[in-house]
Write a protein that binds this DNA or RNA. Structure first.
Length: 243
DNA sequence: GCGACAG
DNA sequence: ATCTTGTCGC
């Protein structure tokens, strides 16, 4: 597993973070991929109170599900302090270090990661999903609940899996897709080591009848449950691993 | 210049 | 993301 440590550290400034994104965006490769035997959903849950300016405590969850059943097979959790603020366009630097810690606790390396955020549908073609995939050398797909810098040309039909291309500077960088009939669409884009067609096909395997794909739903729930546990214990317990 | 801005 | 119960609608 080829790790990129520069992407797993917290940058000293937003400027340096953006510079790293511009540099590493060139290393993202979108290649065809068959539907994998498992998908690993990633999500973070944040503590109510921040420690200082934009310093917050959070829990990251990685949940691997089997296809096509979508049954969970493994869950890993990592918690800790996050010293990088939320800056639109720099989400990867805030979430990926802790997400990676959770992923590396899994007994089995993920086949494909489904990250709660954008892939290449990003101003510098390097959203959090691309960031996570490249940092760990694992195929990744981004799935966000709202568009960021992209636009849709046409309306999206109401039926399940209806989709429309997402455009960014005359380029199709992802798709808005309805994971179930009647629900609002989500916004998917390839992250790393997965091309557009493969990402769409894999996304279609992740619907459990809700708006949010099952791997991310389970990760969201797992992170939320863990946060609830930790919120009732001393702050030091949020350090992971414990001293 | 102004506003908008994944989680 | 997070603070939060009941409630409107299919």
């Amino acid at each position: 597993m080829t790790r990129v440590d520069a992407l797993l550290k917290y940058p000293a400034s937003v400027k340096s973070a953006i510079k790293l994104q511009e540099q590493f965006a060139h290393m993202v490769s979108l290649i065809p991929r068959k539907v994998p035997p498992t998908i690993t959903g990633i999500d973070l849950s944040y503590s109510t109170q921040s420690l200082k300016n934009d310093i917050s405590r959070a829990v990251a969850a990685a949940v691997t599900v089997r296809l096509p059943s979508l049954e969970p097979v493994e869950t890993a959790i990592a918690s800790g302090t996050i010293p990088f603020p939320y800056v639109p366009g720099c989400l990867g630097f805030r979430e990926v270090p802790l997400a990676a810690a959770a992923i590396e606790k899994l007994d089995n390396d993920p086949c494909v990661i489904l990250f709660d955020g954008h892939g290449i549908a990003h101003p510098r073609k390097f959203g959090a999903a691309s960031h996570c995939g490249l940092a760990l050398g694992i195929p990744s797909i981004g799935c966000a609940k709202s568009a960021f810098t992209t636009t849709q040309t046409c309306q999206i039909a109401m039926e399940q899996f209806a989709s429309q291309p997402s455009w960014l500077r005359k380029q199709v960088v992802g798709h808005a897709i309805r994971m179930a009939e009647g629900v609002n669409p989500v916004f998917m884009s390839p992250g790393h080591l997965v091309d557009m067609a493969s990402a769409l096909q894999i996304m279609r395997c992740c619907s459990s009848g809700f708006r949010v794909p099952q791997p991310i739903r389970l990760a969201h729930e797992a992170a939320g449950r863990e946060k609830k546990q930790l919120s009732s214990s001393p702050p030091r317990d949020w350090l992971d691993p414990l001293p």
